[in-house]
Amino acid sequence: MSNHHQFIDLHTHTLASDGLHMPSDNVKMAKEKGLAGIAITDHDTVAGVKQAIEEGQKIGIEVVPGIEISTVANKLDIHILGYYIDYEDQVFLERLNQLRDVRSIRNDMMIKKLQELGIEITIEDVLALAPKKKTKQTVGRPHIAEVLVHKGIVKTIKEAFDVYIGKDGKAFVSPPRIHPTTAIDWIRQAGGSAVIAHPGLYENDELVEELIQHGVDGLEVYHSDHSPDEEKKYLKLANKYQLTITAGSDFHGERNGEVFHAPIGGRKVNIDVLSELKRK
């Protein structure tokens, strides 16, 4: 039977990363919008995938297990989507864990630099100041700044940033992020297909083409932030390299009727592409 009237949105976020909705809600919304399927692609985590798949089985929506991995090349934030990864693969999960630890690694590096500058500060000082929330408190530079004010090293938070921990400060550090080619390799090693997310946002087609040549399976030609001209251009590029053409809304949620990026199904593609993503 032909699927030519069935569509899927291959790029959505949930509460597992920076979206606003439960994974199961994304699946329900896909059904309400008349889609046949949806992918869950949270940033650097697969924590929402299982719940979405269970909901999909309940209500008859195809759920594609996915991920969106944050990487950096040429100082640009590049996002690589992965589909049909083995989301229980221990090596893959450990790698994602390290990606999510970048912030705490940065804190440790900054504190070490401050100590080298003769300032008596420890990670314990910083954690003691961070509010003890029930959720996982993300400790970052504002908390380090507060400790510096507290200890009388600086008078204000602004001075803490200007002198020490802002990007021109004496103790600023930027831990290395992985390169997109590494993310592509990780996805493939976890049995998945790698797709370059929203190529139009990078404004660097040379880099996009280099990544394609490294070996990706698909290109997100249709994205909420692409202009019609960009969609034409990336369609050509995808065809030139015989890549799977994907589409995604990049849905993050709605609050008070206001939608971030686009609603679910805001960009969609024929569900037939799944057989290509699976085959790869």
Rank of each mutant, 00 (worst) to 15 (best):
L15E: 08
L76I: 13
K278S: 06
A130V: 11
H214A: 12
Y83K: 00
K136W: 04
I271H: 02
E276C: 03
V216R: 03
I212S: 10
Q90D: 09
E258K: 13
Y222F: 13
R255E: 15
G191P: 06
E146W: 00
A190R: 13
I212V: 09
H252W: 10
E120V: 15
D101H: 14
L15Q: 09
I196C: 02
Y84P: 00
H261R: 13
S224T: 00
H198F: 04
Q213E: 11
R177F: 15
H4I: 13
S275V: 04
G82N: 03
L237D: 00
D86L: 01
Q213A: 07
L274W: 05
L20A: 10
L207H: 02
E210L: 06
A238T: 08
E68L: 02
I212M: 06
E258D: 04
K133R: 11
T181D: 12
F161D: 12
I144W: 00
V269S: 04
L15F: 06
K75E: 06
S275L: 05
G19F: 01
I78K: 11
G257N: 15
G66M: 09
V139Y: 08
H21L: 12
R100D: 07
E146I: 06
S70R: 12
I80Q: 02
G60T: 10
F7L: 01
P131Y: 05
A194H: 04
V49C: 07
H179M: 02
N270L: 05
T71L: 06
N97I: 03
I67P: 10
P131I: 09
A47W: 03
H150V: 04
R255W: 15
S275G: 01
V269P: 00
I69P: 03
H143G: 05
L211Y: 14
A30D: 07
G48W: 07
